[in-house]
């Protein structure tokens, strides 16, 4: 069927599928990051980071991840613009929050905020890391040390916190909405999905926020306290 993924529902399916993949990515990302809060955290984190950065399967998946992110962003922005055009003359009095949640109506805006944050985030960590691997020393950079350095700037910390808050609202709607779009939000599973989604949208961003904040306030051991064994 030629229009399967380009019809109004098809486009939403693309959003849903990429959205769920990104949720999967967040689980991994969040898991690895949270290692720093464990005893011997620097080592655990660094080893996991090394694995992720060098394992060929992961590196292949990374390409898929980027494709998914880009698709999610481009499709999302296009949908937002297209949907906006379906009401050329707006209302004088808008319903406000009487019939829907503000964040469910603001996915395009929240997504854009996340995108801006993401640009900064990638340029902080992913870009220098891959550059070093392929065009520099041939090895990964010390990400823990990099974090310690980056999160000294209170403005950067603030942007990270705001980015994660945007992510939280985005997920609060996006999580269940993806399941709804994929036809899986059945009455039987609806409470589970909704509950899981809410928990996820709070816990995951909180962990992400915890890192810059912890670094900024010096709650974590300094990078210099860890000497790689090899």
């Amino acid at each position: 069927m030629k229009n399967f993924l380009t019809s109004s529902i098809g486009k939403k399916l693309v959003m849903g599928i990429t959205g769920v993949s990104l949720i999967g990515f967040l689980v991994v990302h969040c898991y690895i990051n949270s290692l720093i809060f464990l005893p011997d955290g620097i080592r655990r984190f660094t080893e996991a980071g090394h694995f992720m950065g060098t394992n060929p399967i992961i590196r292949t998946l990374e390409i898929g991840l980027f494709a998914g992110i880009i698709l999610h962003i481009v499709q999302g922005l296009m949908l937002t613009v297209q949907n906006k055009s379906k009401r050329p003359v707006g209302y004088n009095v808008s319903p406000g929050n009487k019939s829907s949640k503000w964040y469910s109506r603001s996915m395009g805006l929240l997504g854009t905020l996340i995108l801006l944050f993401l640009v900064m985030h990638i340029s902080h960590f992913w870009v220098p890391n891959r550059y070093s691997q392929h065009f520099g020393s041939g090895y990964e950079i010390n990400l823990y040390e990099k974090m310690e350095m980056v999160f000294q700037d209170p403005i950067v910390v603030l942007v990270y916190v705001l980015g994660c808050i945007s992510l939280a609202w985005h997920l609060l709607h996006g999580f269940w909405s993806a399941f709804q779009t994929l036809g899986l939000y059945t009455p039987r599973y609806a409470p589970l999905i909704k509950g899981l989604g809410t928990a996820f949208s709070i816990i995951v961003p909180l962990i992400f926020i915890a890192m810059p904040v912890a670094f900024y306030f010096g709650w974590l051991p300094p990078a210099s306290s860890y000497v790689p064994s090899h």
């Binding site: 829907s100 469910s104 269940w176």
Partner: peptide, 18 residues
């Protein structure tokens, strides 16, 4: 029916519940 809905110029559902 979905194809016709799109042709008529209705937007996509973003599950706001309004």
């Amino acid at each position: 029916m979905v194809e016709q809905m799109d042709k008529e110029g209705f937007g996509a559902c973003t599950n706001t519940g309004a």
